[in-house]
């Protein structure tokens, strides 16, 4: 179970339409890489409180994975003004995540 707040149902239903700036973290219960990625996201979040952070259990939401063509986790979906502007699969360290976010 991720300690990051689960993506509220309304965002699942309207496919992020009302989100202005967020990172959605797709993870899997027994995935060791997801556990590490979660720590990186927590560090990132502490320094970027204005960016909303949500988690999605990938095995509970196959429809979202399909919509975003996500095959593996951890995957981050970056949302701006209701649009998914970037999807990234794999690990990043805090420095890489910071640079990735800044490049969007």
């Amino acid at each position: 179970m991720s300690t990051i707040i689960q993506l509220p149902k309304e965002h699942v239903e309207n496919f992020f339409a009302s989100i202005s700036d967020a990172i959605v973290f797709f993870h899997k219960e027994l995935c060791p890489h997801c556990k590490n990625m979660e720590k990186v996201l927590e560090k990132f979040s502490a320094k970027h409180p204005s960016v909303e952070l949500y988690s999605v259990d990938s095995e509970a939401h196959p429809e979202l994975l399909k919509k975003l063509s996500i095959e593996r986790v951890p995957t981050l979906a970056f949302i701006r003004n209701g649009e998914v502007i970037k999807v990234h699969t794999g690990l990043m360290n805090p420095r890489e995540l910071k640079a990735f976010y800044a490049s969007l």
Binding site: F26, K28, L30, C31, P32, H33, C34, S58, E59, P62, L65, I70, E71, R72, V73, P74, T75, T89, G90, L91
Partner: peptide
């Protein structure tokens, strides 16, 4: 490879 750092949802370990 990037897959080294990922898992597949739904697949057994």
């Amino acid at each position: 490879k990037e897959e080294m750092w990922t898992c597949v949802p739904g697949a057994e370990v």
